[in-house]
C-alpha cells in the first residue's frame, strides 16, 4: 500500500480509504438487457441457490453471493456479464442512444462495450477497438456471448485510428476513452496492482493517454460527447490528461451525477495546477461505495 501514501493530501478519510483497499471486492454482475430482464436474471440465479442483492444507483448491477457467477445458466445464455460495479460508471456517463455511432477506443475485454451496446438497445454501430490481439479474443468472445449485433471490432492503435473502415461515417457521436493506466484502483481484486505503480510510471503513461483522448476528440462530431476514464488514483493520469485536452481548446467539461458517492476532481497536485473546471470530473474511492477506484471525466466536443 506504500504506493498509495502519496495520495493522503487529496483523498478524504484516508484511513478508511486504506482499510477499504485491503478488503476483498464484492462480486457483481451486470444484467445484459439485450438478452434478458433483471427480473428473469434474479429468478434464474435464485433458482440456482445464489442470493442476489440490488444496487441503488443502477438497477442492472447486481451483487451476487457467489465467487463464480460464470458457472450458471444466466451466464451461459449471455444474460449477465461479470463486471466490477464501478466499471459500469463510464458507459452510464457516456449515455449513448439507439442508432448512434460510438467509439470504444480501448475496448478489451468488453464489459463497457457490451454495456454501451445494451444502452443503445443494440441499435446503431459501436466500434470496439483494441490494439492488443490477445485481449481482442476476450472482447470478441464477450460480444458474442452477450449477443451484440451492433459491434464492429477493430485492431488498431487508438492514437492513429481513422473512420476509413466505415464508408459514409463522418464522425462518432460519442467516444469512450477508458485508457490503459496503472490500475491502482483494482488493488482490491488484484493485490499485485500496486507493483510498479508510482509517479514516474504514471507520468510515462500520460503521453499515451493524452494522445488517445486527443484522437477521440478529433473523431467525434461537434456537440458530441467524449468520456475519459481510468481505474487509477494518479492525478498524472487523470486530471493532468484532461487538463491537457482542455488546453487544446476543442472541448469543455460537463458535470454529471451517477448516483454513486464520489469526490470532485482536484485542481492542484504537487507543484502543478489544473483548470478550475476539473472539479467537474469525479473520483470514485473504494471506501465510498465499497467498489474499486475510478476516475471519470465527461467532455463536450466544441469544434
Amino acid at each position: 500500500m506504500d504506493a498509495l501514501a502519496r495520495y493522503e493530501p487529496i483523498i478524504p478519510e484516508f484511513d478508511a480509504f486504506l482499510e477499504a483497499c485491503e478488503r476483498h471486492l464484492p462480486t457483481t454482475v451486470r444484467v445484459n438487457s439485450i438478452k434478458a430482464t433483471r427480473d428473469r436474471v434474479v429468478e434464474a440465479l435464485e433458482a440456482e441457490g445464489i442470493d442476489v442483492y440490488g444496487r441503488d444507483w443502477n438497477s442492472d448491477v447486481l451483487g451476487v453471493a457467489t465467487g463464480k457467477p460464470g458457472n450458471t445458466w444466466p451466464y451461459v445464455h449471455g444474460w449477465i456479464h461479470g463486471q466490477e460495479e464501478v466499471s459500469a460508471v463510464p458507459p452510464a456517463i457516456l449515455d449513448p442512444q439507439p442508432g448512434e455511432v460510438v467509439w470504444d477506443s480501448c475496448a478489451a475485454p468488453g464489459g463497457k462495450t457490451t454495456q454501451i451496446a445494451a444502452a443503445m438497445d443494440d441499435e446503431g454501430l459501436v466500434v470496439a477497438n483494441d490494439d492488443n490481439l490477445g485481449r481482442l479474443s476476450a472482447l470478441r468472445a464477450n460480444c458474442d456471448r452477450l449477443g451484440l449485433t451492433s459491434a464492429a471490432v477493430t485492431n488498431t492503435d487508438a492514437r492513429r485510428a481513422t473512420l476509413d473502415p466505415f464508408p459514409g461515417v463522418d464522425a462518432f457521436d460519442r467516444a469512450l476513452v477508458d485508457a490503459p493506466c496503472t490500475c491502482e484502483g483494482t488493488v482490491r481484486k488484484n493485490a499485485d496492482a500496486l507493483e510498479g505503480a508510482g509517479a514516474s510510471a504514471s507520468r510515462n503513461l500520460a503521453a499515451l493517454q493524452s494522445d488517445i483522448l486527443e484522437r477521440a476528440i478529433e473523431l467525434t462530431r461537434e456537440g458530441g460527447t467524449v468520456v475519459y476514464s481510468t481505474c487509477t488514483f494518479a492525478p498524472e493520469e487523470n486530471e493532468a490528461v484532461v487538463d491537457d485536452a482542455l488546453a487544446d481548446g476543442d472541448c469543455r467539461l460537463l458535470e454529471f451525477d451517477t448516483g454513486l458517492e464520489s469526490s470532485p476532481g482536484i485542481t492542484e497536485w504537487n507543484d502543478e495546477t489544473y483548470d478550475d473546471s476539473l472539479t467537474k470530473t469525479r473520483r470514485y474511492y473504494p471506501h465510498q461505495n465499497d467498489t474499486g477506484g475510478f476516475f471519470a471525466a465527461k467532455l463536450e466536443v466544441t469544434a
Binding site: R140, G147, L148, S150, A151, A152, T154, P165, P167
Partner: peptide, 30 residues
C-alpha cells in the same frame, strides 16, 4: 433492420446499421 455481410467463404454476419462495403475489420455484427 439488419444489413447482412459475408466474410471469408460463406460466413454470414448481421449488423443493425446501414453501411456500404467493403468493411476491413475483425468482426462486424453477429
Amino acid at each position: 433492420d439488419y444489413t447482412l455481410w459475408e466474410k471469408g467463404k460463406g460466413k454470414v454476419w448481421a449488423l443493425p446499421y446501414d453501411l456500404e462495403g467493403p468493411v476491413p475489420v475483425e468482426a462486424l455484427g453477429l
